[in-house]
């Protein structure tokens, strides 16, 4: 077991290996083919289908999740590389009866149409507002949300939703009134 890579790799090399993922605060012990990306582990092995596959190449952001409070494209990393770190998906954010403020704002400002890129947009927005330097301007929001493509063109609503949540956090009283 010291050097498990020793030996001639062959077609049996796709044997599953133990992988432990901590998703939305819960630990999951899995046996996975090392080829399984974090995205496919979430979707196909853990049932977190809220995280979407749009391109599988890091070019659309639909698969954005938080790993150790940072937003990443989960399609370009292997599940086996993401053990021992907290992973948060859209399912860990809020439920229909207990929405996260950003989820509420996306509904109020209609920050989506088809909804397919929405989980990724919201995870990016959460990272932007809660784990990164808050954006100072709409231009900055737009630039820093540009890793999340939306073909329906919901960008104006997305920017509005993020701006409103940011402003409400800065000024809670006014935020509640609005």
């Amino acid at each position: 077991m010291d050097n498990p890579e020793i030996g001639q790799p062959d077609e049996t090399a796709d044997v599953a290996v133990p992988v432990t993922l901590t998703v939305n605060g819960r630990r999951h012990d899995l046996m996975l083919d090392p080829r399984v990306t974090l995205l496919d582990a979430l979707r196909n092995y853990l049932g977190f289908t809220g995280t979407k596959k749009g391109c599988d190449q890091g070019q659309c952001g639909a698969c954005t999740v938080l790993v150790a409070d940072r937003r990443i494209d989960s399609c370009l990393t292997l599940a086996v590389m993401n053990q021992d770190v907290p992973i948060v998906t859209i399912e860990g954010l809020g439920a229909p009866e207990s929405l996260h403020p950003i989820q509420k704002a996306f509904i109020e400002h209609d920050g989506f149409q088809c909804g397919y890129c929405t989980s990724g947009q919201i995870m990016s927005a959460v990272a932007l507002l809660e784990h990164e330097k808050p954006p100072a301007s709409d231009t900055e929001i737009r630039e820093r949300m540009s890793g999340n493509l939306c073909r329906c063109g919901a960008y104006p609503g997305i920017v509005e939703a993020i701006r409103c949540v940011r402003d409400a956090a800065r000024n809670p009283v006014a935020g509640e009134a609005a």
Binding site: G50, I90, P96, L99, Q103, I107, D110, F112, T118
Partner: peptide, 16 residues
């Protein structure tokens, strides 16, 4: 009016 399918879509609950 807000989309009636909004809560499902913003929580990842809408099944495609």
């Amino acid at each position: 009016i807000d989309r009636v399918d909004g809560p499902l879509k913003v929580t990842g609950g809408a099944k495609y």
